[in-house]
Every structure is written in C-alpha cells, then in structure tokens.
C-alpha cells in the first residue's frame, strides 16, 4: 500500500483530515508527503492510504504535485514565502540626529545631583500621602 504516488489522508496533527501524496519512501516507517498538507516527513502510522494513485516521480516537486491535485479537483493552497525585512540600521557619528538624545541625559544628571540632599525628608511624606488614596 505504501508506495510513491499513493493518495493518503493524514490522521495526526494540525493537517489531520487533509489529503496528501507520498512523494518518497524514506524508511521502513517514514515517507515524504506533500499536497494539501505541508511537505514533510511523516510516520506511516499517521497516514490512512486511499484507493487512488497519482503518477509522479520519486521526490517530485511541490509544484508538480499541486498541478496533479488540481486535475483531481482538489485545490491546494499556495503559501507565499516570507520576504526578509531589512534590518534597521544604527546611525552613528555624523548621521545621528543630535537634537534627540543630548537634552535628556542632561536632565537626568541634574535631577540626581539635586535629589540626595532632599531624599531623607521627601520619600516618607510621599508614601504616607499615597497610602490613603489606594484604600
């Protein structure tokens, strides 16, 4: 039953219930399948063979198999390949915008210098004020 060109239905996983074709026999237990399902290695136990056969070569390309499936009246969804997005470039030196970052740093430093003197008094008052609001 398990031979190249045999139509099957997948029984396990997210492609369960979908039709596929055996494109290659890899092993005693494993075959290469393609069709409505993803093109992948598959255990024989996860396949239910059907009566029908398709004439395909050993290790046929997915485009050939999808063409054969169309003849049978089964539509195969074509998956688009993802295009790689360009990596964002880090700007350095002259290209960097000077206006964005410099003023922030100055502010932080200024705050730190001022705080330590006030710290001992200030935080206690703040915590007391916050608690009653929560309740």
């Amino acid at each position: 039953m398990i031979e190249i060109g045999r139509l099957c239905v997948k029984l396990a996983g997210r492609d369960a219930g979908k039709k596929c074709v055996i494109a290659d026999v890899l092993d005693k237990n494993f075959v290469l399948i393609d069709g409505e399902t993803r093109r992948r290695k598959c255990n024989i136990r996860h396949l239910e063979p059907l009566k029908d056969m398709i004439k395909i070569k050993k290790g046929a390309a997915s485009s050939e198999i999808s063409a054969e499936f169309k003849k049978l009246g089964i539509e195969v969804k074509e998956t688009k390949k993802k295009e790689k997005a360009e990596k964002p470039k880090k700007l350095r030196g002259k290209d960097k915008k000077p206006s964005e970052e410099k003023p922030k740093k100055e502010k932080k430093k200024a705050d730190k210098k001022e705080k330590p003197a006030e710290k001992k008094e200030a935080p206690k008052k703040e915590t007391k004020k916050e608690e009653p609001k929560k309740k």
């Binding site: 239905v9 029984l11 396990a12 996983g13 997210r14 369960a16 219930g17 239910e48």
Partner: peptide
Amino acid sequence: RPFGGVLCPKCMRKII
C-alpha cells in the same frame, strides 16, 4: 488539530 479541545485524538482518528 481538527476537533481539538472537543475530542481526544483517538476518537478524532476514528471519525476521520
């Protein structure tokens, strides 16, 4: 998978 969260995998295979 089809019938995921409704049927166990054994019963799903039976139905298919």
